Computed example of a mutant assay.
Amino acid sequence: MKRFDPCKAAELFILNDFPSCQGALLAGSVVRGEATETSDLDIVIFDSNLSSAYRESVIEFGWNIEVFVHNLTSYKEFFKSDCERARPSLPKMVSEGIVLRDSGFLDLIKQEARDLLEKGPEAWSAETIRIKRYFITDALDDFIGCIMRAEEIFIAHTLAEMVSEFVLRTNRQWIGTSKWILRSLKNYDEKFAYKFVEAFDAFYKTGDKNKIIAMVDDILQPYGGRLFHGFSLGK
């Protein structure tokens, strides 16, 4: 099927599938100029006639389309839950989205999203940091002691997720998963992001664990270093 221009495809999709909606935004990689051959269209719909929010995936006009449908209040709960988990998916889509339809309220919602993104996530408590230190230490010990290559690969993956989360949250930065781990790290500190990738890349290519071990110890050191002795949970 012919692949339409992304904005044209989004406009046709809205006209066909949500003709009575009061607001619509096109967001995602096509808006940021980062689209690839497998990118989809992220479309946010606002329709006051809906009783609840939902998400749906369709293929129309040559595009995979992810549509996030809200009434004029349901988005607020999603903003709240996204921010609580420090992964502001909907606020980011709304803030960066290109307006395709607006009955006069989208400026206010886009400003809500921008304000939340600028504020950043809530700071971790000392207890949360302590717990995270323990579990990172546990994974690091497993990584250091492991002698089976297949197991090392998966432990390294776990460490990458845990350590990136620790760095970002202790600095009150938004986190992400998959490709958004790297993007979040770059947004925080490009030099650190490069060092992070270099350490894990060296391990995956050569099996050398030293850069990962040194990096994790450097990250934990300001918070008391590795934690095992004396740790308890629920006592």
Rank of each mutant, 00 (worst) to 15 (best):
K80T: 09
A113Y: 07
D17G: 04
I153V: 14
R114C: 08
I14M: 01
M215A: 06
V69N: 00
F154E: 11
V99P: 02
S89T: 15
K209Q: 05
D141G: 11
G207F: 06
L90V: 05
G28M: 04
M162G: 10
F4E: 07
K8V: 12
F13V: 01
N16C: 13
V216I: 14
A10P: 02
S89F: 14
L185K: 00
R172F: 09
H157M: 12
K211V: 07
K119R: 15
I109N: 02
T206K: 09
S95V: 05
F46L: 06
F18T: 01
A139G: 04
T36M: 04
D218Y: 12
E165S: 09
T73S: 11
F143N: 00
D138S: 13
I147E: 15
A10S: 11
A113Q: 06
A214G: 08
Q173A: 04
K119Y: 07
K235N: 14
E161F: 09
E96C: 08
T36D: 08
G225W: 12
E151M: 13
L227W: 04
T36V: 08
Q221E: 15
G230M: 05
D5C: 06
R183Y: 14
R3W: 06
D82L: 05
R183W: 11
G225E: 14
G224P: 10
A214K: 14
R101D: 07
E11K: 13
L185F: 04
K191L: 12
W180F: 14
Y223S: 10
A86L: 05
P88C: 04
D189L: 01
F46V: 01
F228W: 13
D107R: 11
I219V: 15
E152W: 05
F13R: 00
F228N: 12
L100G: 01
Y54K: 12
K92D: 06
L41K: 03
G207S: 04
V197M: 10
K76V: 13
G62E: 10
R85G: 04
A27Q: 03
F18W: 14
T128C: 08
D82V: 06
W174P: 00
A86H: 06
G207C: 05
L108Y: 08
K110H: 02
Q221A: 15
D82Q: 04
P121E: 10
L106Y: 01
F196P: 00
I181M: 03
H157T: 13
S125H: 03
I175V: 15
D138Y: 12
T158P: 02
R169Q: 13
L12E: 13
G234M: 04
R169P: 03
G225V: 12
L116D: 03
P88N: 03
K209H: 03
C146V: 11
G28V: 02
A24C: 07
Y188A: 08
Y204Q: 02
E77C: 05
M162A: 15
A27L: 05
S103H: 10
N16V: 07
D5F: 03
T177I: 10
K179E: 14
S20D: 14
L182K: 12
F46R: 00
V99W: 03
N49D: 15
L116C: 06
Y188P: 03
F61R: 00
Y194N: 12
A126S: 14
R87L: 09
S39F: 09
